[in-house]
Structure formats: structure tokens, C-alpha cells
Simulated scan of single mutants.
Amino acid sequence: MLRLTNILMIFVLSFSLSAFSSEPSAPSPYAVLENVGNKLFNRIAASRQEINKFPSLMQDIVEEELMPSIDYQYASYRILGKHLRKTSAAQREQFVSSMRNYLSRTYATALTKYKNQQVIFEPEKSVANKKIVGIKMQIVELNNPTIDVIFKMRKNKKTGEWKAFDMVVEGISLLSSKEAELSTRIAKQGIEQVSVELASIAK
């Protein structure tokens, strides 16, 4: 059975949490994180019987509830790391598209293991004048240790949106792990080949 730690990957490698506007009255990153998380998990819980009969429904839920809030472009660029400056616009576009589809498929698969665990969000704190914040969330499951998760969120200076670009689980950065995994492959095979491989996995 997939461990709960892996289930947490649904929140992404590059999970984007939009604050909808840069106005003072707009939701804080704390409020947006809780809203997006609760909405996603509540829909899964309400659709559990249908998902059991039609597993492909989870993909629809991910596309409707999660993917609109995924900053897959920023995450993709972070994953490319040192290779980014060596790529053309067309290569970057292909890689971002492949990564988006890969993430969507990965999250849908992981979410099938979600069984209504309790999710506790960190209380609100001031984010005044901050561009990056880390927000803690706890996953509580009966007879299992509580898992602490830190979402690293960045405020887009152009749109005012807060987007989570990384998640740290048990001290391990999922973004850094993916970057390390793909960096060597990109160096050896090239970004276009890696993009094709990611796209094939997502099918």
C-alpha cells in the first residue's frame, strides 16, 4: 500500500495556491491553502463510491480541482535548474507541457490512496513584506505517526498570487528530489528526450 508520505505528493511538487488578487482584502496564503486543500479532499470523500466504480473519475477531479492551482511552469523551470539557460523557448514549452501532464497523472494515482485522513493547517501568521513563506500542515492518521509538511510559497510580484513551489516532507524537498532525478538524465539524453519520456509516462 502506498505510504501516506507518497499520498502527500498530490500537493505538488509545484502546487500553486492562488490568492486571487493583490488587494489587502484578498485571502492570505494560509487561508488559500486551507481552502484549496479542504475543497479537494471533501470532493474526493464525497465521490468515493463513484471513484471506486470508475477510477478515471479521479483524473477529472484532479483536472478540475487541483490543476488550475498548479504552478507547473515555475516548478518546471526550477527542476531544469542549470539546464534552463541552455534551452530554447520551444524546448521549455515542450518540457513544461510534459511536466504538467506527468504531474496530473501522478497526483490522480496518488489520490486514489487517500482515505479521509485528518488534515490540520497552521494558524494564520503575518506575511507582510514577505515574498516567500513556509506554511506547515499536519496529516493525522489513527495508529500512524503524525506527518509534518512544509509548503514553500512564493508571491508572484506581477499578479500578487501566492504559489507553493515546493513541499518538504520529513525533511525531504520534493522539488529538489525531482531536480536531482532529472538533471542527470537531461545532461545525458537532452531535454527533448526527457520531455518525450515524461509525456509517455503521463499517457
Rank of each mutant, 00 (worst) to 15 (best):
K115M: 05
S200C: 00
A108L: 07
R92T: 10
S22V: 05
L84G: 13
T184M: 04
K39L: 13
L8S: 07
A128G: 00
V32C: 10
Q91W: 04
P123A: 07
V36A: 09
I61N: 08
I132W: 00
L33W: 03
Y74W: 14
Y30N: 05
T184L: 11
I172H: 00
S16T: 07
R92S: 11
V194T: 08
S18K: 12
A108S: 14
K136M: 12
R43T: 13
D60E: 15
S97Q: 03
I44G: 03
T87A: 09
Q49H: 09
A75E: 05
P55Q: 02
A110E: 10
T159C: 11
A187Y: 05
Y77A: 10
I79A: 06
P24H: 09
Y102H: 15
S98E: 06
M99F: 15
A19S: 15
S176I: 12
E50H: 05
G81P: 02
T109W: 03
K188R: 06
I10K: 04
Q91D: 12
L84F: 11
V140W: 05
R78E: 15
G160M: 09
V96K: 06
G171M: 00
K157Q: 15
N144H: 12
A199C: 05
M99A: 11
E64S: 13
M167W: 08
L40E: 07
E93P: 04
S25R: 11
F165V: 12
T159D: 01
D166E: 15
Q49D: 08
